[in-house]
Design a protein around this nucleic acid. Structure first.
Length: 264
DNA sequence: ACCCCTGTTCGGCG
DNA sequence: CCGCCGAACAGGGG
């Protein structure tokens, strides 16, 4: 499920638990979701702390707790955050439950492609990409964008848009949406893109990120009906612009939908 | 039953 | 060492 805007939506689900203490923590340390994480340390340090704030960078979320404690969550393909009553019983895929007096904060992920990390210390954890320019920040400039594309000249632009080290938060549907709006075919190598095509791509990267956060990120409401996302998984889905049947193929390792007429 | 999947990581190859 | 690709991870839904 989760790309930039969905991550933002789920992060906010736990806002109701801000400024409240974590009384108890329920987890199963052997689950794959905790790979590489010291769960004993997590439980020992986090119990009794207060949830102070949270942020997201791309698809990664960071929850800060009192006493210099940091919980990193990644939703993978099927992760979700939600809130349940205090005495709620965790179901099979509810891998982490933070009990507060008034509620339980729940992290669930059936496929466990997501991840739970923990860090105790005064500064951000080393795995937190604090310096990586985010789409929508002033640091995400045309020259930064160009330099990233130039480092991946032989790859199809679709694959490059999916690289989290350059486009934090972009996932499969957003990449298709961006390419469709910019009228660029997904298999084009970045090396052959014109200056005008690069400009269009950067413009649409920003637009799709901003608009999806405004709609999906705030209320999980649908993006405008004219967006490709509403057509791309339908059998016989049509290009919203010229009503031609969308083509589907695997590009950059992922199923890709595009219009062969308006994307060149 | 069978095929599909909004993500990341790792090993192989050039 | 770098960039690119395909497989693997795991479970649920159509």
């Amino acid at each position: 499920m989760p790309e930039l805007a969905e991550v933002e939506f789920y992060r906010r689900q736990w806002d109701v638990g801000l400024d409240a203490k974590v009384l108890q923590i329920a987890l199963h340390p052997r689950k794959r979701i905790f790979r590489g994480t010291n769960t004993r340390s997590l439980v020992r340090h986090l119990t009794g702390t207060k949830l102070l704030r949270s942020t997201a960078r791309g698809k990664q979320m960071l929850f800060e707790f009192s006493g210099e404690n940091w919980l990193g969550l990644h939703l993978g393909m099927t992760g979700k955050l939600r809130v349940e009553p205090p005495a709620f019983r965790a179901a099979k895929h509810d891998h982490l439950v933070l009990r507060q007096a008034r509620r339980s904060l729940v992290f669930t992920d059936s496929r466990q492609f997501g991840r739970v990390r923990f860090h105790h210390g005064a500064l951000h954890p080393e795995w937190w990409p604090a310096e990586l320019p985010q789409i929508g920040e002033r640091t995400f400039t045309r020259s930064y964008f160009d330099r990233f594309l130039d480092r991946h000249r032989r790859a199809p632009i679709k694959a490059v848009l999916l690289l989290q080290s350059g486009f934090p938060g972009i996932g499969n549907w957003m990449a298709d949406e961006i390419l469709w709006r910019a009228k660029v075919a997904p298999a084009r190598q970045t090396a052959v893109l014109s200056n005008a095509e690069r400009a269009a791509l950067l413009r649409e990267v920003r637009f799709v990120a901003r608009e999806s956060i405004r709609t999906i990120g705030a209320e999980f409401s649908d993006p405008p009906r004219t967006w490709l996302i509403h057509q791309r998984w339908k059998r016989g889905g049509l290009c919203p612009r010229d009503k031609r049947k969308l083509r589907r193929a695997t590009i950059g390792g992922r199923t890709t939908a595009w219009c062969t007429r308006c994307q060149r």
